[in-house]
Design a protein around this nucleic acid. Structure first.
Lengths: 325, 325
DNA sequence: ACTGTGGCAGAAATCGATTACAGCCGCAAG
DNA sequence: CTTGCGGCTGTAATCGATTTCTGCCACAGT
């Protein structure tokens, strides 16, 4: 492959000058022109490994996600990718499968590779996060809050739960169940808290048998929905607090010949196979969350950012489905 | 950060010896033990950038995909990720958006980063692919055939089209339409060829008005289905030749009050919101395709592979839905 | 005319690992 | 007793860029 010394030789200058031309340092116009000519003639592009070694950081960022098969996260990844590309960065995708050890593994690799930064949707607590920030690495946390002092881009999850529930109340439903994620999952708990708050504010009870903790996947939604519909006194509306659970719930409803229930979902369903006009969708915007996170990361990499900040990703109150009666 | 010289100093040996211990070269047991002790005491892990520079290849592989939001490709990515992880490699995700220039951009980066290898689902022809193979880089092509002499993991697309169509014939349908991808897209054409072949073999006509070239996305499926159902003589069955088009078609059918049609889909619908018991799914297995491709790439990286080979990814003939009458 | 300053280019150090090369030691064979 | 070989180890070269340091030159100020 052509190296910088080849370019230097062809242009009749030193490698230092070639490097300066390529990095926009001051070089006299005539030499610069000669270098550029040599660069295009040889089709030279700098070896990024060597550059990274010297600069002490690469042009890669790690995107550490718990589940790349969830459309929420792929859409987020898409947003990150778009910003990274225009900033000259490439994205290393790391799938943790919600496993903390895998997460630590990838964060350590990001460190060993001298990556420019890390965007992580954390699966549980991470000691490595603190180590990265201590060493002034650019880190941005998305979707799930952590205690560490790092940039974070989050939804106001309790508010989401409250607003989605309120939408169902507005339609006249009174017995509203909530299917949320596992206990100890802060996001799931906060959204359930919002559900409870909305019911309480409306002077309604929020009994425990209307709150189901499912796994946050399609089968969890199916199981939860089955259980709710089989109850002695089934709900007349159900809030699914994430997209996959919503998919499972919808799938159950579409088969069920028994009691019907109005459904509200926090999240989006880009691959719904049925018309979902009678479902409330409180759309999140994972792609925009990815854009926001990546922009934050880029400015931190460039050293333009101040103290760590928490950004609440706005979720425009787009409520699809039948309007309130 | 701790460097190899710190470990060497603590263990009282040279850096060469430390390197040898870490890379399983011959070192006397006592020194090796001392080195290992020092490594764990300092929590040392080698700087991968420096290693890559010296070794002339990194521990990264590029996965170049046309659309990371398509569940087919995320599932494929998942498979690649799994194999890569156990082989000590990390995956750089590159989204080309079906754009050839973006694809070239990423392939060049993979080269400049000295990545260990590349897995690519090509968006159109790529000159860079040839350059990579010339320079003995490990390259595996997935899902879409190219003329280059590289390893490829592909489906037998015409056979897929034929089998899916046959399944619909077996159910007694005679007027079977086909919604496929854009013209000039080899995969889409091949599957349509299979559809035509199956009809012809059954002694049926395959008229042009039953073949719709849509874009290979959800809205393409919706538009095509709308058009087919509005026809003077609508089909009694429709073959959707990819997953997203299938989603669009199903969505249309679920709303349509007009003529019904049996649907067959090549691909899988992991996020279907309706029960699709009355739909034929010819499931592909993108995750396994990813596994296969990544294993092939790993063996090529290790220099264990011979001449370039084409692997036909088996798609087990799992036809869901109502059995033939 | 002399000194100071700033712009620019080249030589060489540097990043942190791996590895070619050379040297040392001990043992076996002649 | 000498030679040769094999097994280990350390020294130093190496990967390919960036960046510090040094020196040259031209121009301005006194």
């Amino acid at each position: 492959m052509t190296r910088i010394k080849d370019v230097a030789a062809l242009a009749g200058v030193s490698t230092a000058t070639v490097s300066r031309v390529l990095n926009d340092k001051t070089v006299s116009p005539d030499l610069a022109a000669a270098v550029r000519r040599a660069v295009t003639e040889l089709g030279y592009t700098p070896n990024r490994t060597a550059r990274s070694l010297r600069r002490q950081h690469s042009e890669l960022i790690a995107l550490v996600l718990p589940d790349i098969e969830n459309p929420f996260f792929t859409s987020l990844a898409r947003g990150v990718e778009d910003v990274a590309r225009t900033a000259g960065l490439s994205v290393v995708l790391c799938n943790t499968d919600e496993d903390v050890e895998t997460q630590e593994h990838y964060l350590r690799i990001a460190d060993d590779e001298n990556m420019a930064g890390v965007i992580v949707a954390p699966a549980g607590p991470s000691g490595f996060l603190a180590r990265l920030t201590e060493r002034h690495r650019a880190v941005v946390v998305v979707d799930r809050a952590v205690a560490d002092d790092v940039d974070q881009v989050l939804f106001d999850n309790e508010d989401l739960g409250r607003r989605a529930t309120q939408a169902l109340l507005d339609r006249g439903h009174r017995r509203i169940a909530c299917v949320t994620g596992p206990r100890e999952t802060p996001t799931a708990e906060a959204r359930a808290d919002g559900w409870r708050a909305a019911l309480t504010a409306a002077g309604l009870p929020a009994p425990d048998d209307l709150l189901v903790h499912a796994n946050y996947r399609v089968d969890g939604g199916e199981a939860a929905m089955t259980r709710l519909l089989a109850a002695a006194e089934p709900p007349d509306a159900v809030l699914a607090t994430n997209n996959l659970v919503g998919v499972g719930a919808l799938r159950m409803l579409s088969a069920e010949r028994g009691p019907r229930a109005q459904l509200g979902i926090i999240g989006d369903l880009p691959f719904a196979t049925s018309h979902i006009d009678d479902t409330f969708l409180l759309r999140l915007h994972p792609r925009e969350m990815g854009l926001t996170a990546a922009r934050l990361l880029v400015s931190r990499i460039r050293g333009e950012a101040g103290p760590a900040q928490r950004v609440v990703q706005p979720s425009r109150p787009v409520l699809l489905g039948a309007s309130p009666s």
